[in-house]
């Protein structure tokens, strides 16, 4: 199982393609069920909230339960703790280097 982190800090309003996201999620949950441990969404901009509400209507309950939208300070602390500071890159509050 893997943990997904989606950083939306640099996304723009024009880049939102809800249809592509729905297709992507549906593909992954149909062909790779149970491969996702958790999916964290960071820095979700306000204009993405309504898009996410629509996208989530098309996702399975089991998938949605794994998605965590990190917005508050408490959620951020839990996110860092669950990934582990050793693994999490510095820009997300950990101590690791981000190496492709």
């Amino acid at each position: 199982k893997l943990i997904g982190i989606l950083d939306l800090a640099n996304i723009g309003y024009r880049n939102i393609d809800a249809r592509a996201l729905i297709t992507g999620f549906q593909f992954l949950q149909a062909y790779y069920p149970e491969r996702l441990a958790k999916f964290y969404i960071l820095s979700m901009p306000w204009f993405f909230v309504s898009a996410w509400k629509m996208i989530s209507l098309f996702l399975e309950k089991a998938t949605l339960e794994k998605v965590v939208i990190v917005s508050s300070q408490d959620e951020r602390k839990t996110f860092i703790k669950e990934i582990g500071e050793e693994t999490l890159p510095e820009e997300y509050g950990g101590r690791a280097k981000l190496i492709a």
Partner: peptide
């Protein structure tokens, strides 16, 4: 998924790989 940068950090605290997707103007 045409994201700007995709990273795979291995392993996390409990041994699970971590996939990091940084979205930008090419997303999704």
């Amino acid at each position: 998924l045409k994201a700007k940068k995709i990273y795979l950090q291995v392993p996390s605290k409990n041994g699970q790989p971590v996939l990091i997707i940084q979205a930008n103007k090419h997303f999704p």
